[in-house]
Amino acid sequence: MPKLNQDSLQKIDFTLNGVAETGTAEPRMLLSDFLRNVMGVTGCHVGCEHGVCGACTVQIDGKAQRSCLTLAVQVAGRKVDTVESLAGRENPLTDLQQAFKTHHGLQCGYCTPGILMSTSEFLDRNPNPTEEEVRDMLSGHLCRCTGYAGIVNAIMATIEERQGKAAAE
């Protein structure tokens, strides 16, 4: 059984946005700090560090989770996806990202990466949710700029468009 000494630097091999990566961290380092300050993935934003605001949400093994409530060493051997994984640096925006643009689902954009990571998993799991279910999923995120309407409208439009496409096929 590995007992990690508090002062030791742990080597963390994991898959970050589809690429095998390695970094090091003390046992107490938060995943959010590790992603930002060690791995340089600054699309993961830190808003409260107590699990309420949702800004730091990333997907671990495909599930949306708070990176501020996760230790970096816990992702060893796992797959971590941040907002940078969605369209990458140069591919076209995903339909969900584009819908946020079309429906003005973001202003300062600070909460947006977390919301995108939750929503993309949520829609994979539940492709045909009601607006109420979408709002319920969003309740794990705080946004101060938009009043949420643009976000909800963007997600609902994405759902509609996906269904239109599915029906056409």
Partner: peptide
């Protein structure tokens, strides 16, 4: 808001 130091046991069994 960062945790204090602790030793970490990553248990693999009960």
């Amino acid at each position: 808001m960062k945790p204090r130091k602790f030793d970490l046991v990553r248990a693999e069994s009960t």
